[in-house]
Simulated assay, not measured.
Amino acid sequence: MGPAKRCGKSRLLDVITESVHDPLITVNASAAAVFRSITDAPPTLLVDEADTLFGSVKVAEKNEEMRGLLNAGHQRNRPTLRVSGPNHEVAKFPTFAMAALAGIGDLPDTIMDRSIVIRMRRRRPGEKVAEFRTFRDTPALHALRDRFVAWLAPLHADAMELTPTMPVEDRAADTWQPLVSVADLAGGQWPDLARTACRVTAKHEAEQDQDSSSLGIRLLADIRRAFATEGNPPALRTGRLLDILNQDDETPWPEHTANGLTPRGLQILLKEYGISSATRRFHGNVQAKGFTRLQFADSWARYCPEPTPEPTTGA
């Protein structure tokens, strides 16, 4: 993914095309055609300009089948059902296939969540890179691909039995496990390098997801910072909490309405998490509407957990 044109996305896809098993470039291909191209020995799907498929709500709606195919293809044994043939019989079509997508901006969340995301940047003036020339460089890529096949083919059964220790959990672990398994088979420095890449990339994408996620999750994170600003008291008045949120110009709250985030707006956003204010007793025996820190503990842990400190190694 890249934020704009000329970030090297298509060039990277060119390199991948010459390096993978049975590449299938799906430019303007229909979902039905792609369905029928995937067999028990699937090709590698290559989708350039993927933002043209999902770049707007209206366009994405027209390509819902393609999105469903890419989502289902993340795992084996997730066939799609279609009515096929003159007798209108229900047929199963396999969906599992490796896929590489290139595009401007982020793709739908369900695709991003199933992907290893490589974020590209445009070269600065003066930065030099070796140019890729198809006719000159393709033979070397084919030779590298063939070496990988010759090495890995005899190890296929061993690779399928591996259950490597992963530095991430859930879907990120599912996505990265094949690469980490290959790294473990290679030995040497590769197991550590693969796990470092996995951990750093997954952490970055989690931060990106939090930055662009719903207002509710953003609000939870900002409320945690508000409590920290006040020294993490057991409870915080609603008025004081809103003052802190609305004074931070780097958050969306000052412009949430003409008057910033209001008590009513705060109540609506927190309702989804089962959190509401109540009359509480504060310093000086003063009663006021407010929240306890304990009310947020479960939601903080579930939706915006604080990063786990990376392990340090001794000298």
Results as ranks from 00 to 15, higher is better:
residue 298 D to E: 15
residue 309 P to S: 02
residue 155 L to Q: 00
residue 235 A to I: 06
residue 133 R to D: 11
residue 119 R to F: 13
residue 89 E to R: 07
residue 227 F to D: 00
residue 15 V to L: 11
residue 113 D to Y: 04
residue 271 K to Y: 11
residue 223 I to D: 11
residue 259 N to D: 13
residue 215 L to M: 09
residue 243 D to W: 00
residue 4 A to H: 12
residue 295 Q to H: 13
residue 3 P to T: 13
residue 115 S to G: 03
residue 72 A to T: 06
residue 112 M to E: 14
residue 291 F to K: 03
residue 311 P to L: 12
residue 13 L to W: 09
residue 8 G to T: 03
residue 184 D to T: 09
residue 192 D to R: 11
residue 143 A to N: 14
residue 121 R to M: 01
residue 249 D to M: 14
residue 254 P to V: 10
residue 96 F to I: 03
residue 131 E to S: 15
residue 195 R to C: 10
residue 153 A to L: 14
residue 104 I to R: 02
residue 84 S to M: 06
residue 167 P to M: 01
residue 39 T to P: 07
residue 176 W to D: 00
residue 267 Q to Y: 13
residue 33 A to Q: 15
residue 252 P to D: 03
residue 3 P to A: 06
residue 127 E to T: 07
residue 131 E to G: 02
residue 294 L to S: 11
residue 196 T to S: 11
residue 178 P to K: 01
residue 148 F to V: 04
residue 227 F to R: 00
residue 51 D to T: 00
residue 54 F to S: 06
residue 153 A to P: 02
residue 92 K to V: 06
residue 193 L to P: 00
residue 289 K to P: 00
residue 126 G to N: 02
residue 86 P to V: 12
residue 217 I to Q: 15
residue 272 E to R: 15
residue 214 S to C: 14
residue 15 V to Q: 04
residue 215 L to P: 03
residue 286 V to H: 04
residue 162 L to N: 10
residue 93 F to I: 08
residue 213 S to R: 13
residue 18 E to D: 15
residue 184 D to F: 13
residue 49 E to I: 11
residue 50 A to M: 03
residue 244 I to N: 00
residue 133 R to G: 03
residue 113 D to Q: 06
residue 298 D to V: 15
residue 206 A to S: 07
residue 181 S to P: 01
